[in-house]
Simulated scan of single mutants.
Amino acid sequence: MNQAPRQRMTAQARRQQLLTVAWQLVRQEGSAALTLGRVAEEAGVSKPVVYEHFTTRQGLLAALYKDFDSRQNALIDAAMAAAGDRLQDKAAVVASSYVNCVLTQGREIPDVLSSLDSTPELAAVKRQYQLDFIEKFRSWFAPFVAPSDIPLATMWGMLGAADAISNAVVAGDISQQEGMQELSALIITTIARCG
């Protein structure tokens, strides 16, 4: 019997497969188990294939965070485009999108984020994504504080609160609903204080 020839994946499809395998490893065993060799083994490919895509473990961790950040931003952007014009509407959308995105990713994202702080290069990657989110967040809420601007310290505080609340939801310390309500209330109060 003739078997159909095995088809090669495109580079993009292979990269996504490797990222999916890496997320599964982090979910099952934590980021400490994440090595390029282990990803190759679990994906059923040779080590050079994984090295070609990520070069180093740090490159893989950065790619995982980029993957998470891209999905998070797409969800939040779509939700914000559909949100009402009131501060309460926008705050509720940001809060629910942020909490839901972290909750969907589960315990893996706090683990990956912790690993990103392990080297100066990875910390710089994480910081750049945070700065990008802060600027996006600032532009969404700028109409509510015009003509002034939201102070950078305030933006860092809101981002820290969003991360802490989301992580508490993932850990089961608070419910998803409690997390979204608290984050929404915090955003409203903070933006109102800046206006």
Rank of each mutant, 00 (worst) to 15 (best):
R138G: 02
P147R: 06
W156S: 04
I134V: 13
A146K: 11
F144A: 06
F133T: 00
W140E: 15
D132L: 08
M155W: 00
F133W: 05
T154A: 09
D149S: 12
F133K: 00
A146G: 04
T154D: 09
W140H: 12
W156N: 10
G157T: 05
G157E: 02
P151R: 07
K136E: 07
F141T: 00
A146R: 12
L152Y: 11
I134R: 09
L159G: 03
M158W: 03
Y129A: 14
A161H: 02
P151Q: 07
L152Q: 15
I134W: 05
R138I: 03
W140D: 08
A153I: 11
Q130S: 10
D132W: 00
T154C: 12
Q130V: 06
I150F: 02
M158C: 01
A161L: 05
G160D: 07
A161N: 09
F137R: 01
T154L: 09
F133Q: 02
T154E: 08
I150S: 09
W140Y: 15
D149W: 05
L152T: 14
Q130I: 01
S139E: 15
T154N: 05
Y129R: 13
E135P: 02
Y129D: 14
F133Y: 07
F144Q: 09
M155E: 02
F137N: 02
P151F: 11
F137M: 00
D132H: 09
S139I: 12
L152P: 10
R138L: 01
I150N: 01
A142E: 10
E135M: 15
S148C: 13
T154S: 10
M158H: 06
F141W: 04
L159C: 10
A142T: 13
I150H: 03
F133V: 00
L159Q: 15
R138M: 04
A153Q: 14
A142K: 09
A153V: 13
F141A: 01
S139T: 12
F144G: 02
F133C: 00
F137V: 02
A142R: 11
I134H: 06
V145I: 13
I150K: 04
T154G: 08
T154Q: 08
Q130H: 10
P151E: 06
A153T: 12
A161K: 04
P147G: 05
A161P: 03
P147S: 06
I134K: 10
S139N: 14
R138A: 08
T154M: 08
G157V: 05
W140M: 13
A146I: 11
W140T: 15
P147M: 03
M158E: 04
M158Q: 01
